[in-house]
């Protein structure tokens, strides 16, 4: 029986979604699996919504992009972006999301009414397994805002949703990240995994 994991990584431009998809790809290649990813690069990177499609399989993969209902896992770097990408997630899939919302740019006194809580409530009722991660606490614990991506990846891996173990991601991090950032990212990976199982 063939094995396939389809992952959607949704966030706001600048949050580090691209590294997360690269680490999954690295882990897949190390495991001898096939992988295709697709990134949002360009204008949307300036604070717009960005979505990475990551497809891992032991069989050939044709399309880098998924259709609605094809994803097994949705990793949200921000609750609203997770909600926006829910159409990709199959019923019974897994949502791992950061708890902290990123407010859209306020342009008028009326426009500043975005609630991350309302988004989390919608995720809670969507029929998927849900893990809400306190990304801000993990980043504070590790001492860097840049590890949110690896912490969320660690949470999803810790839940067994990605098909790769934490050890496999550790190896992927060592292979992909500059040496002086390796320890920091590995600590974030495990902090994310602990947070998901808590």
């Amino acid at each position: 029986m063939s094995m396939q994991t389809n992952i959607i990584i949704a966030g706001v431009g600048g949050q580090g979604t691209v590294l997360a998809s690269k680490l999954v790809a690295r882990a897949a290649m190390d495991a001898g699996l096939r992988v295709r990813t697709s990134e949002t690069i360009g204008m949307a990177q300036r604070g717009g919504s960005v979505v990475s499609h990551v497809r891992v399989s032991d069989a050939p993969i044709a399309s880098p992009l998924m259709a609605p209902g094809m994803a097994d896992v949705l990793i949200g770097f921000e609750p609203g972006e997770a909600v926006r990408s829910l159409a990709f997630l199959r019923p019974g899939g897994t949502v791992v999301t950061n708890a902290q919302p990123v407010a859209p740019v306020a342009i008028s006194p009326a426009s500043a009414a975005y609630s991350g809580q309302a988004m989390l409530e919608r995720l809670d009722g969507c029929g998927a397994r849900l893990a809400v991660i306190d990304g801000a606490s993990i980043c504070a614990e590790i001492g860097s805002l840049k590890v949110l991506n690896v912490a969320l990846l660690g949470a999803a891996a810790g839940l067994g949703a990605l098909g790769f173990s934490l050890d496999q991601f550790e190896t992927a991090i060592r292979e992909s990240v500059r040496e002086r950032f390796v320890d920091m990212n590995i600590r974030a990976l495990h902090a994310g995994a602990r947070s998901a199982s808590a």
Binding site: P68, G69, E81, V83, L86, L89, P91, R122, L123, C126
Partner: peptide, 14 residues
Amino acid sequence: AADCSASAGEGAEP
């Protein structure tokens, strides 16, 4: 397509 957007129900939009 069966997906999770419908079951998330109505509510605030992102």
